[in-house]
Nucleic acid binder design. Structure first.
Lengths: 160, 160
DNA sequence: GATAAGTCGTTACAATTGAAACTATTCATA
DNA sequence: TATGAATAGTTTCAATTGTAACGACTTATC
């Protein structure tokens, strides 16, 4: 019997939920998202979709709803709902494109901008807290891994 | 002007959705989960909660519903619903603990086990496909990063 | 310039999920 | 052994989300 038998490979042929990356990613993401969502909700009455719309409009004003959807990986119905509640709370202004009356032009209002300026640091603080666990090198590694997996996941989704 | 000015750090003070790790994790997880869910649904009529219950019972037979919930990071209502549809499809058997009649004892039926044996390879194949993008070293790194982040996220969630 | 096909955004309806209340049972304590 | 608190699991109701259909408008084609 060989004494230097290889260690079990991480990905083996039996399914073990605790080692199954899609599952672990899902649990991790849920935990993270729930923490953040709770804070947004508690302190600003914002849902995650609403917050995402605000974040993207803060950086790119005057997008249409569809453009917001593209940049936030939300579908257009979700954007439509988020926009409508943000409008009703006065956090957004909406006008329409003169040359294409279907397209909306969305922008943070004064009050929306003010809220954004308070929420953004909260979000960043959370992220910093989370990444505190990691060395600078690990953070770079994480960054690249997430990018690589994302690309791969997209490709697979297209095939399946 | 110094020519060797440092590169911008990855985590800076402005919020950029594409660089915000919680957001990126969320998009990645959704993409991955949807691919898998679609395949389960298409080929076996299983939802993700149902599939998780089956996976954990395959490895640990005779758990109670609460124990399943603990091991799958689902809440007990979700488990109750998944169990009830699995029972109605004959994929599970349920008995009750003699000494504590509240506790159920769940176990895959013959047919459940048969389904499991077909689904598990599908899941593992997906994972392998996803991780193909990565070197062995990267895979180990991913493993550790997810663990570290998970621990950290739990800790933060407890505080907040 | 009429018609068909496509796009933007909303609405309506169904399915999923979450939170709270509930039943049945057990446990702790007096 | 009676009573209050706790636990396992289900049910109910409300909120969220996904899908499909729709109205308004624009673009392409004839």
């Amino acid at each position: 019997m060989p004494h230097n038998r290889k260690r079990q490979p991480r990905t083996n042929d039996r399914l073990h939920l605790d080692r199954f990356i899609p599952y672990r990613l899902s649990v991790l993401t849920n935990t993270v998202s729930m923490s953040i969502a709770r804070a947004y909700e508690r302190e600003f009455g914002l849902s995650i979709p609403e917050w995402r719309v605000m974040a993207v409009l803060a950086r790119y004003p005057d997008l249409s709803a569809i453009e917001v959807a593209e940049r936030t990986a939300m579908d257009k119905v979700a954007v439509s709902r988020a926009v409508s509640t943000l409008l009703s709370h006065g956090r957004l202004t909406r006008s329409y494109d003169e040359t294409d009356k279907r397209r909306s032009i969305l922008r943070l209002s004064q009050s929306g901008l003010a809220v954004y300026k308070k929420v953004a640091p909260l979000a960043l603080r959370y992220e910093r807290k989370l990444l505190n666990a990691l060395s600078a090198a690990d953070r770079r590694a994480l960054d690249q891994l997430v990018s690589a997996l994302m690309e791969r996941a997209r490709r697979i989704a297209a095939q399946w």
